[in-house]
Each structure stands twice: as C-alpha cells, then as structure tokens.
Design a protein around this nucleic acid. Sequence first.
DNA 1: TCTTGCGGTACTAAGACGGG
DNA 2: CCCGTCTTAGTACCGCAAGA
Length: 286
Amino acid sequence: MDINELRIFLAVASEGSITKAAQILGYVQSNVTARVQQLEAELNTQLFYRQRGMLLTPAGEKLLSYAEQIIHLLEEAHKALNDSTEPIGRLMLGATHTASAMYLPSILANYFKLYPKVELSLMTDYSAELVEKIRHFQLHGALVKSELNDESIVQELVFEEQLVLISAPEMKNIEEVCHQPFLMNTKGCPHRDQLETWLKTIGIGKIRYLEFNHPDAIIQGVISGLGASLVPKSSILSLEIKGLVRSFEIPEQYSTAKTFFIRHKDSLMTNALSKFIEMLKQSSQH
DNA sequence: TCTTGCGGTACTAAGACGGG
DNA sequence: CCCGTCTTAGTACCGCAAGA
C-alpha cells in the first residue's frame, strides 16, 4: 500500500465512480480500476460494492478514515516543513450564508490586502455540512452557528449578535407579526429553534414556515410582505432607517445569535490560518 | 410490451515506459 | 533486465429511451 494508492482510493470513495476519480486524478479509468483491485487484493478484503458506481463496503469505510488521516498527516508534514513566517499557501475556509454575508467581506478584503500570497477560498454552506468538511480535513476553518460537542473540533465564540423580529413596515404590533408565516432558513438553523421556543412561551405553537436558503432572499421576502423573520439586528439597520422593514425586539434569552469559528484539532496551525483567526478576533471585538 | 440501440460503467489483456 | 505503473484496445454489463 502506498500513498498514491490511498489517494486513488480516496478519490474513488469521494466520487463514487472509477471514471470520475480517474478524470480528477489524470489517469485513465482502467488504471484506477487496477489500483483499486490491487489495494483490495493486498488487504485481502473488498473495499467497494460494484453496482453502477462504487459504494464503500464497511471495510472500505474503515479504511477511509485511516486514509484521510494518513494523507492529511502527510500534507501537514509538508506544510510544517514549508511554512514560512509570511502567510502563504492555500487557506480553505467555510461559512454559513449569513456569516459570509455579514462578517467576512471586510475581513477577507483586509486579509487579502495584507497577505496577498495566500490563496483564499471560501465555501458557503449549512453549518452541518461545514462541520462534516472540517471533520474530514476538507476545510481549514469555518464559521458556523451552533455550538458543537465534538472532541475532534476546536471551537471559539467569535461573534454574538442580537436577533430581532422583522416584518413589513405596515405591521402594527408584535402579536400581528407572530401570526404571519415565518421566512427562515431551510434546515439546521438554530435561530429557528430559538424562535419556536419563544413563540411557545407566548402561546403560539403552530408556525407556518416559508423556507429560503439565503439571508438576502429572506429579507427581500419580508420587505415584499411575504411574512416575518428573525434576523441579526445589524443586517437590517439600514433597511429599517429607510422604512423598508420594521423590527421588534424579543426577550434576551431568545434573541442571541452566536457564531463560532471551528477547526479540526489535528489540523496544523499555519501562519495563514493563525493570521486569519487573529483578524477574526479583532473584528469581533469591534 | 418487447426489442433495439446508445451511453455510461467496470473489467481484462497486452504492451510501453522508466527506475533500480 | 526486472518489476511496477501506466496506457491502449477491446469486452461485458446495465439502464434508459425510442420505436415497432
């Protein structure tokens, strides 16, 4: 078993296809087939189920986590030997749609200005998906909404925001707003749980949701009178001044939105990453 | 409903190539 | 020269859509 064999194995596992893995790796398909077979013969076990695609067997799943760690360790070793005092190299970050829209534009612009040699990439996704990517070393760090209980992940609270209830400006009072449909994120949104808990305390158990997957779409929906929502106060300040939306405060214990920066505990703290975290912390203090 | 052709998939055999 | 790795060429299987 060599590193290349493991890379091939990982590519097939992640693509679920020998052909696609071969395209990504720059090999012909038959070679990838042969290498996978070789690995299976060497380990004397079947790693994939073949059925119009390649699906990991339990043994394959087991090997997958080892292979990820081995490849990751190798990359870390490489980075450790090459990490210079000046931040350089690739920095792969993730953020929820909200975090990426609210906090990152100015931080990233500033970061890019100071450290132009870092190849920055930002992926936006739901918190759960980002956490998975951190677990599998596919991202160096990510901004997510919920606090995690996971030994393999290091997390730090970086932003705390006040959430407010918003509606179209015509809404007269909070009771009227609460009986509107709520425009919320599609899934895994902690704001949604907070909203539901609070609404229950004021006697509203049945909530109609309109699901959106982007904060801008939610706010535009509220402006056009589709319903209400619970959003970070700072994201609608200017809209409220213009009279496009109306906001209502809700009790403090339900209105705090926390954003955490997470990374894998075994990922190497490169200069590029530590400078980014530094900037994140500076910006969160303002 | 059955047949046929097509596209996508994986597998095999043979030979080229390069490093030790 | 041997061995491991890779490519080329060809085969087989499967699912799907179109047509009889």
